[in-house]
Design a binder for these strands. Structure first.
Lengths: 247, 247
DNA sequence: GTGACCTTTTTGTCTATACAAATAGATACA
DNA sequence: TGTATCTATTTGTATAGACAAAAAGGTCAC
């Protein structure tokens, strides 16, 4: 019923998770395992390779396979687009454009983004509300040479984050989370007190070493938090087909 | 030189990353690929399975393989033990125990932790300094029935987080990041102003559905931030053998 | 002792083949 | 028309065997 290689995988995993095999323990070599499980070496190899990819064991030719040190540190945070997140949680989301301006990168900002000064950008300010209550202030820069279609987009119906997700093929991103005190303007927009602790998420998105967009989300600290989990034994699974099936 | 399956993997990956194959695109079936790359189906299959595990494609029997929707959201945050983090960055770390008390779980805390009231716990308060400057206030609860050796540990030399990492076999963890304003006590300990925005990290660690420890780190907002990256095409790799090689 | 070379162990990759499982689409049938 | 059944396609799993590559450890000549 359950494939053999998955059984082997679970078996070994549980020995590691439970502490029977502590970090540094040398696990049986493939030849011993194939005898134990009565299967071919390829099958054992698949199980062990998967464990190695997940970082639970380390394999070395001639030396063998060893239980890796734990690393609680690599936590997966679900940092999503704010509108997507609200929708998923069954909340109502809306946004208001506060500013939309085409300008050129000044020296300081260019330095911060790692881009060249003078490049044409679209600067957006946008207020997000969840269930009618102010939830985030968005300050965004979009590089117009990489996303020229942004020039004519008003972002009135689709929020910038969501819109961009569909425009840029694939990307890498860097996230920074900070705590800052709200200044007067921010406090007014977020309907909170001046000096109130706010959670700021900064996201810079690249496509092959060029910045696509740089954005700051400022959330009132009393209405927002980030959460993430670390599961050593679960690999992420995706089973939803994308909507538009293009040939 | 480079294994074939890795070449196939990189090839397909680059087509996805560059946007040549957009989300929803049906990629050639294994039979076509093995003709293109002049290799066996197993080799093609390995490449495609790896891509599927990484979440870049979705495979369906009879239907074929499709490019998955992007999901910028699953970001890996390096949330480490504070002393480890300081060491790695080449900073000097020290800690001071402020409180160390054995007590029993009250109803409210038990509820919050999902544990039963009255269980024996060790409550720790601890101040962390990096390069001589206050960097975090740690408030921790350790379940004594799961970690009985904590009862006699003073945590004078090794900070609690690091000590626990070596004591508990493997575990899953949940992290929550929030922004809060410093109260008078916190402000005094962290050498900052009352009301100052602080970044709070809450971590709850389990071992097979039992809480091992629950901890809050409160960082001054002006001295701390979390950062994390999303790389679609890199799987995490570990190549460092654990120190103690036990047989 | 030191370096060059060989042997052995263990993992890494690959092939060719086989059958199983899922399932979309076609076909037969009531 | 709707339903049950068959068929073809595609991926999933497994096998047995082969050779390659890394690297520890041994051997031998110098």
């Amino acid at each position: 019923m359950v494939p053999i290689h998955q059984r082997i995988l679970k078996d070994i995993e549980s020995k590691i998770v439970s502490g029977i095999w502590p970090p540094g323990h040398r696990i049986p070599v493939e030849h011993e395992l194939l005898k134990e499980y009565q299967c071919s070496r390829m099958t054992v190899n698949k199980a062990l390779s998967t464990l190695a990819e997940r970082g639970m064991i380390i394999r070395r030719r001639k030396l063998g396979s060893f239980v890796a040190s734990r690393q609680i540190d690599r936590t997966v945070m679900d940092i999503q687009d704010i509108s997507t997140e609200a929708e998923l949680a069954g909340h109502e989301h809306s946004h208001t454009m506060l500013m939309r301006k085409v300008e050129r990168l000044d020296a300081a900002t260019a330095m911060r983004l790692g881009e060249t000064m003078g490049a044409e950008i679209l600067r957006l300010h946008c207020l997000h509300a969840v269930d009618g209550k102010a939830n985030a202030l968005e300050r965004r820069i979009i590089m117009l040479d990489l996303v020229p279609s942004a020039r004519t987009e008003s972002f009135a119906t689709v929020p910038p984050g969501k819109w961009l997700l569909d425009m840029v093929p694939w990307s890498k991103a860097r996230h920074v989370i900070r705590a800052v005190s709200a200044d007067a303007t921010t406090a007014r927009l977020l309907e909170t007190e001046r000096g109130e602790a706010c959670l700021t998420l900064i996201r810079q998105t690249w496509q092959s070493s060029r910045t696509v967009t740089y954005v700051e989300f400022i959330h009132p600290g009393d209405r927002f938090q980030f959460a993430g989990d670390f599961h050593p034994n679960e690999s992420r699974t995706i089973d939803q087909l994308p909507q538009g099936i293009a040939s």
